[in-house]
């Protein structure tokens, strides 16, 4: 039985990718005009001028094509103060997010206002565009807005057609393992493989789950498993890809430990890839003990034991 209760393990999980955005004819034109220090809107079927322009009319859903140049000054319709800016926001000092209706526009644009303090912000205040000195294409070519009484800075336009922008997305999670998985991971740090048995169906899960996926009951009965088993099935990964941690080619195999009822994916080395077989007996090859942590990576790979292959019938129900 599991008797000790300890804190679940957590570790950072950072996910990031530089997505691209094809802008299409309307937003592409908007972004291109920003490079010329002009702001374009588009006129809708009801006569309203939408800024930023929209591709399709919100009323009729028809494509919109009548572009209208609007002013680079406008009026704040509402705002919210940001005392501690986050990474990636337009300004790295306190600023206001504001909805700004540019002169000649009928809809408001969301952008930052560099006002210095919330006391300087007010609904109805007049602001103007501050152009960035380092254009990237897109709405970021407006560095921010500033009150009309701020000293004007001269920035030269850098005309260039814009058809695509890069949109980096970064997510920073704290990934937490379940209490059961944490116990299994702490076992790995001691070179042990700890699973749990479902009290209803008797299946042994490694890693253990908080509940049996079939019966929905907690799996509390701990089972220590040997570091040997059988390859149920596998593939040979020959293809390189972004974020890959093992250099191809490598054999990714489902390893069913002796006494377990579910296989997990791991690496098979110690023989040529073409010699790996369904039913091949393998054993864990552990990394040096001093490098162990709370991870399945403590097992560097599985290698053939040289024993006779397991008969197909013995693992057929695990495919």
């Amino acid at each position: 039985m599991v008797t000790s209760i300890s804190e679940p393990l957590s570790a950072p999980l950072d996910v990031g990718f530089d997505y691209t955005r094809s802008l299409g004819p309307v937003l592409g034109r908007f972004a291109t005009e920003l490079r010329e220090h002009r702001v374009l809107g588009v006129r809708g079927s009801d006569g309203r001028v939408h800024v930023p322009p929209v591709e399709y009319d919100p009323v009729t859903a028809q494509p919109l094509t009548e572009f209208v140049q609007v002013g680079t000054e406008g009026t704040v319709t509402t705002w919210s103060w940001i005392p501690e800016p986050l990474a990636g926001q337009p300004l790295q000092r306190p600023f206001a997010w504001a909805l700004i209706k540019l002169d000649g526009a009928d809809t408001a644009l969301l952008h930052a206002v560099d006002a210095g303090s919330p006391q300087a912000m007010a609904i109805g205040m007049r602001v103007r565009v501050r152009w960035t000195a380092e254009p990237v294409g897109g709405i970021r070519d407006i560095e921010c807005f500033e009150p009309l009484d701020a000293p004007e800075r001269a920035v030269a336009a850098t005309p260039e057609p814009v058809t695509m922008i890069t949109s980096p997305v970064h997510l920073r999670y704290l990934h937490s393992a379940s209490p059961e998985e944490s116990r299994y991971l702490r076992g790995l740090a001691e070179g042990r493989l700890l699973g749990q048995r479902c009290p209803a169906c008797g299946k042994v899960y490694v890693p253990p789950r908080p509940a049996c996926p079939t019966d929905g009951v907690p799996t509390e009965d701990e089972v220590e498993l040997p570091d040997r088993g059988v390859v149920t099935t596998f593939c040979v990964v020959n293809v390189p890809f972004l974020g890959q941690r093992i250099k191809p080619p490598y054999v990714a195999a489902y390893v069913l430990l002796d006494g377990a009822d579910i296989a997990f994916l791991h690496l098979v080395l110690g023989c040529a890839a073409e010699e790996v077989r369904m039913g091949m007996r393998v054993r864990a090859v552990w990394r040096p003990r001093e490098s162990w942590g709370t991870t399945l990576e403590n097992i560097d790979h599985f290698a053939p034991t040289g024993e006779p292959d397991a008969p197909y019938e013995s693992f057929a129900q695990h495919l």
């Binding site: 570790a11 990934h175 149920t232 593939c235 990964v237 490598y250 990714a252 709370t294």
Partner: peptide, 29 residues
């Protein structure tokens, strides 16, 4: 998509290889 399908959570073994890597062992089966 290959990157998006191969994101590795902490504590696990980095053997995943996109949709092809996921389905190929089952094709073998």
């Amino acid at each position: 998509a290959m990157w998006a399908l191969s994101i590795l959570p902490p504590f696990s073994m980095p053997v995943g290889a996109g949709a092809g890597g996921y389905f190929a062992p089952h094709v073998r089966s």
